[in-house]
Simulated assay, not measured.
Amino acid sequence: MELRKHKKIILFGLVLSCGIIFILAYFLSKSFNTIVNVMIISFILSYTLSPIRDTFIIKFKVSKRAASILVILLILGIVASCIIVIVPALFKEITNVSNIFDNISNFMDEVFRKFNLNNSTVSNVVYNEFLERGNELWVTFTENSVDNLIGFSDNIISFAIIPIVIYYFLCDGNKIYNKILLFLPTEKRGLVKKFLYNIDKVLTRYITSQLFLSGLIGVLTFILLVVLKVKFPLWISILNAILNIIPYFGPIFGAVPAVIVALLDSPIKALWVIIGMFVIQQLEGDILSPKITGDSTEMHPLVIIVLLLIGEKFGGFIGMVLVVPIAVIIKALYDDINYYLF
């Protein structure tokens, strides 16, 4: 009798909590979305960083709290270094962005003069249209950058909390996990633990494979940029490695900053960067990614490409990053349900 009463109290508490959450979501949708985003981002980052925390625990023989602090300090140090080193340099180079269009214009003039295209109506129309589209793209990019910067500054306090939330996830993740399991019936906890264990195993394999692939692409990009003497080779390589988390499409996104920076020097250098990045993309897309990503997820490359297109349609860049891990989780659940229940 007491047990049934206790369960009713818990059920009432859950219903009441859900009701309060939905009310808050209705009246404070923007603030609620920010809170949810902070929690989701913190959980994903803490889950990704947990292998580094475990490595610190084993290598330095420290407690979980100390290892978590070391991980947070490491990430904050990397972010601070990027801000201190890259941002001032980028603002300095942005003042010279007109050089890009001047270099392209001079290059096109030289090509036109060399092949006697100055008197061709078609070539002149194409030339003017190209410059006009380039200016439109730059104006759009500038406006979007300003809007994104304003949006980030509005939520800067919320995002500043992320390292603290990550710390607690890294330190007390197991405690939170065990507390959540208490809401389940005793006889179901073992089955749920098996489900979550298998999801964790598959997801860890996928994340490890993507980090390895991203690191390899980052190294290849760095070598290419150093050989071609492109500015900011280290930071562009790191950015390309991060973008490469998106299978197949990542190298395309990562090539854009390298090409833009190369254009500050000359169109010829930008052309060589395009060729080099294309070779890296072919290596990644045709050889490495199908093998590494396909083996880690046990999905056909065509399925992954379709998932990426769906993720981009519904969630943009974030959707492309998250859609494959979500699919991995759903696949692991499907396999487990088939195995344990049917």
Rank of each mutant, 00 (worst) to 15 (best):
M1W: 09
L3Q: 14
R4A: 10
L11K: 10
V15G: 06
L16M: 15
I20C: 07
I23T: 11
I23V: 12
I23L: 14
A25N: 13
A25S: 09
S31N: 08
S31Q: 14
F32T: 11
N37V: 04
M39K: 05
I44Q: 06
T48Y: 01
L49S: 01
S50Y: 11
I52R: 06
V62M: 11
A67Y: 03
S68V: 05
V71Y: 03
L74Q: 10
G77A: 02
V79A: 15
A80D: 04
I84W: 12
I84T: 10
I86R: 08
A89K: 15
F91K: 14
N96L: 11
N99H: 12
I100Y: 02
S105V: 06
E110Q: 14
V111F: 04
L117I: 00
N118V: 10
T121V: 11
Y127C: 05
Y127N: 05
E129T: 13
E132H: 14
G134P: 00
N135E: 07
V139M: 02
F141T: 15
N144W: 03
N144E: 09
L149F: 15
S153E: 06
I156H: 08
P163Q: 12
I164R: 08
Y168I: 14
L170Q: 06
N174Y: 09
I176N: 07
Y177V: 00
N178Q: 13
L182F: 01
P185R: 15
P185H: 14
K188Y: 01
R189P: 02
L191N: 06
V192W: 09
N198T: 08
I199R: 01
K201D: 14
Y206I: 00
I207M: 05
I207H: 01
T208G: 08
T208H: 08
Q210L: 04
L211W: 04
S214T: 02
L216P: 01
V219K: 00
L225W: 03
V226C: 10
V227G: 00
V230W: 01
K231N: 14
S237D: 08
I238K: 00
N240C: 13
I242F: 10
N244L: 00
I246E: 05
G254Y: 09
A255V: 06
V256R: 04
V256T: 07
P257N: 06
P257Y: 03
S266D: 08
P267K: 13
P267C: 11
L271G: 14
I280V: 09
I287L: 13
L288D: 05
S289Y: 00
S289A: 11
P290V: 01
K291V: 08
I292G: 00
D295I: 03
E298V: 02
M299L: 13
L307E: 03
L309E: 02
K313S: 11
G316T: 02
I318N: 07
V321F: 14
L322N: 02
I326L: 12
I326G: 04
A327W: 07
V328T: 12
I329S: 01
K331I: 02
Y334L: 11
Y334I: 06
Y334H: 10
D335T: 05
Y340R: 09
L341G: 04
